[in-house]
Design a protein around this nucleic acid. Structure first.
Length: 711
RNA sequence: GCCCGGGUGGCGAAAUCGGCAGACGCAGAGGACUUAAAAUCCUCUUCCCGGAAACGGGAGUGCGGGUUCAAGUCCCGCCCCGGGCACCA
């Protein structure tokens, strides 16, 4: 940060530089003041209908004894306990309506293009999962009740040969007999915690029929285990001829496969020759008045038609679901509401915030929040009617804390607001944010959501938190990601203990570019230790520097300024600190080689610059050297040293001479030597190899290369 | 299955815009210093062929093609590894 600030100041470009570090080490999110503002935000959202409570099937981690958000379930397991499958539990829980923001979260990604890694944007796009289609009502033949299905391909509706509902679909309750219900229940249970790819498609006929509103045709209604209640309407029309999953299902149960789309340049597939579903767009066929239309037109017009006749409409479905924030943990911000038997859900008045955690509690892990067993916390009076009431005992997901901590940074001691909007207007957006990819669809989507909510409340002007995002690679130790929560960070600590913090830090930076994943090995660390020793020895034996001739001064100064240039440029752009360190090593190697011919002034200059160059990588040694040299104060108070492009310039250009693209020789010439002269020099040099050949073409890149094409 | 990354010496890696492949470091070999060892300093270290050596020649960036005077880098087709998403209708 010191280096970047200084470079920015030097170039007078970036006026502001804000950096974010791991939040739970910086702003303390478990302080009463932080709770207060978490709760304040929650109440604002409640006011706006963005926070709500509902009974739902939720992901439950038995180890954490709490529910989790969808984003926190990884391959059917808890994100903190990767081998513990989550269970489904029906509970009343608090949600934040992130789905209201799905469209904006998606559209505003255009602003992040270029500044955020494409990978992260793609992951968010997939997670939001916008899908355009139509909702269409099929009607029960018996009593005309509608079954609403979602489809992206209305154009295939004449090929629908059955309607499939999810086993937990509300209609199942009324359509099925006792045996059917228990089969449906078994399907739901069999699905829990398993990889969907491993589950075979299964279903059974409900005995009922529904009418296709377009064709009037009556098709059977089946319960199918691969239809998800949580997506779309929980019911689909199966078009086996044009959907792979439907095809597999219908073939298995002998349900009709009937084509309704033909390839644009082909013919309609006809039974029984159909071996697989044709899922591309094409031309609508066998579909009454719609036949002959291209798929894209039919999709649009059929949705409009359904809307006119009142049995459907164009619809957009998102994969993202509302953010479940209730946790049955002790450690978290209490959700500031009171349940009154008369008034229902009553928000805690703002002047009573923050609601704090009780001190003495017992953690039972019994499935209810630990707070529920503290009568002094639970038993309250309703702020509205004064009747005896119960305080909400769930606490908030800690991802709430991390969603806005970086705003709090700018005004951490404010006690009348979460922060002063004027300060945020000055600092934000964040110029550069740094974090791991593992947060692509967790923290990085939540904090974008929070930013938009705060914008809508009128607190901030920016609609995105960070202009640029850098995702550092993970450190892998014994095949597992190194992390605080896993507690396997010992490698780095032990290295620091053995070879010092400077060596440990520099070794990690030297291992590879920061965006790349690294396997944790300590084998090369001695090399860094040795290098730091070499630096220290050079400085100490040259302070004061002995009187010597300066024959190598120019050469050494050139290397020094090349190194300064390299690091300055790299800090501004790529952050490839491994090559920065390599270039300091090169400099030190030159210093060792040329030491005997170094004037005292240049030796001194190099020592000073080494202290500054090393400061970002090895701060302790750097300060040590700085003191040794008689420098005052912290080395970090010094400005970053500018490089002199003139001094960094090579004396002469080295010109590569190629024959037919193969390296044959090198010649030296002053920079800017004319093309003709370079070619002359090159021909001269490789004369022997041109014997008996004819030069048909000459390609010359000034100051770089001459390529002779010969026959 | 779909969408991203990536594949370069014994190892970590470098080559930033199509222009010297392997910088820098680890490991290894040899030498200097030392009674000796450690530490330090110096030299060598992609592979193959020739040479006592200096050096010379050839091959080479996962595989097969292509574009170009010139390809690790661009294009087409494969293989392998890592990550993300995944009965999302």
């Amino acid at each position: 940060e010191w280096t970047l600030r200084n470079i920015a100041a030097m170039k007078k470009t970036h006026r502001r530089f804000a950096f974010s570090y791991d939040w739970d080490r910086e702003v303390s999110t478990c302080e009463p003041e932080y709770y207060r503002w978490n709760q304040w935000f929650f109440l604002k959202m409640l006011e706006r209908g963005l926070a709500y409570r509902k009974q739902a099937l939720l992901n439950w981690c038995p180890k954490c004894a709490t529910v989790l958000a969808n984003e926190q379930v990884v391959e059917g397991c808890c994100w903190r306990h990767e081998d513990t499958p989550v269970e489904q539990r029906a509970m009343a829980q608090w949600f934040l309506k992130i789905t209201d923001y799905a469209e904006r979260l998606l559209n505003d990604m255009a602003k992040l293009e270029g500044g955020w890694p494409e990978r992260v944007l793609t992951m968010q796009r997939n997670w939001i999962g916008r899908s355009e289609g139509a909702e269409i009502d099929f009607h029960l033949v018996d009593d005309a009740r509608p079954i609403r299905v979602f489809t992206t391909r209305v154009d295939t509706i004449y090929g629908a040969t059955c309607v499939l509902i999810a086993p937990e679909h509300p209609l199942a309750e009324t359509l099925l007999d006792a045996a059917g219900k228990s089969r449906a229940k078994a399907m739901v249970d069999a699905r829990a915690g398993r990889d969907p790819g491993d589950i075979e498609k299964e279903g059974f006929f409900t005995g009922k029929y529904a009418a296709n509103p377009f064709s009037g045709e009556q098709v059977p209604i089946w319960v199918a285990n691969f239809v998800l209640m949580g997506y779309g309407t929980g019911a689909i029309m199966a078009v086996p001829a044009h959907d792979e999953r439907d095809f597999e299902f219908c073939r298995k149960y002998g349900i009709d496969v009937r084509p309704a789309i033909r390839p644009t340049d082909g013919v309609l597939g006809v039974e029984p020759g159909l071996k697989e579903a044709f899922t591309d767009y094409g031309v609508v066929e066998n579909s009454g008045r719609w036949s002959g239309l291209p798929s894209a037109d039919a999709r649009r017009r059929m949705a409009e038609y359904a809307e006119q006749l009142g049995f459907g409409k164009a619809a957009i479905t998102y994969r993202i679901k509302d953010w479940g924030i209730s946790r049955q943990r002790y450690w978290g911000t209490p959700i500031p509401v009171i349940h009154c038997p008369k008034c229902g859900i009553v928000p805690v008045p703002e002047n009573e915030l923050p609601v704090l955690l009780p001190d003495r509690i017992e953690i039972t892990g019994a499935g209810e929040s630990p707070l529920a067993s503290v009568p002094g916390f639970v038993n309250v009076t309703c702020p509205r009617c004064g009747a005896a009431a119960r305080r909400e005992t769930d606490t908030m997901d800690t991802f709430i804390d991390s969603s806005w901590y970086f705003y709090r940074y700018c005004d951490a001691r404010n006690t009348s607001m979460p922060f002063d909007p004027a300060k945020i207007a000055y600092w934000f957006e964040i110029d550069q944010y740094i974090g791991g990819v593992e947060h692509a669809i967790l923290h990085l989507i939540y904090s974008r959501f929070f930013t938009k909510v705060m914008h809508d409340i009128g607190l901030i002007r920016n609609e995105e938190p960070a202009r640029r995002l850098f995702t550092q690679g993970m450190v892998i130790a014994e095949g597992a990601k190194m992390s605080k929560s896993k507690g396997n960070v010992v490698g780095a600590d032990m290295l620091a203990e053995k070879l010092g913090a400077d060596t440990a830090r520099m070794f990690v930076l030297f291992a590879g570019p920061p965006e790349k994943e690294v396997d944790w090995r300590t084998e090369g660390a001695e090399g860094i230790y040795r290098f730091l020793g070499r630096v220290y020895r050079f400085v100490t034996r040259n302070t004061p520097a002995p009187e010597r001739g300066g024959a190598s001064d120019a050469k050494v100064l050139r290397k020094l300024h090349q190194c300064l240039r390299k690091i300055t440029e790299d800090f501004e752009s790529r952050w490839h600190f491994n090559t920065c360190i390599a270039s300091i090593m090169e400099l030190v190697n030159v210093l060792y080689a040329e030491e005997e011919n170094l004037s005292p002034a240049v030796a001194r200059e190099c020592s000073e610059k080494l202290a500054l160059l090393l400061a970002p990588f090895a701060p302790y040694l750097s300060q040590e050297i700085w003191d040794e040299l008689g420098g005052t104060g912290p080395v970090f108070r010094q400005p970053w040293p500018p490089f002199d492009p003139e001094l960094a310039k090579e004396e002469e250009a080295e010109i590569v001479v190629q024959i037919n693209g193969k390296l044959r020789a090198r010649v030296h010439a002053p920079f800017g030597t004319a093309k003709e002269r370079l070619e002359e020099l090159a021909m001269e040099k490789v004369q022997a190899q041109l014997e008996g050949k004819q030069v048909v073409k000459r390609i010359t890149v000034p100051d770089k290369l001459v390529n002779l094409v010969v026959k």
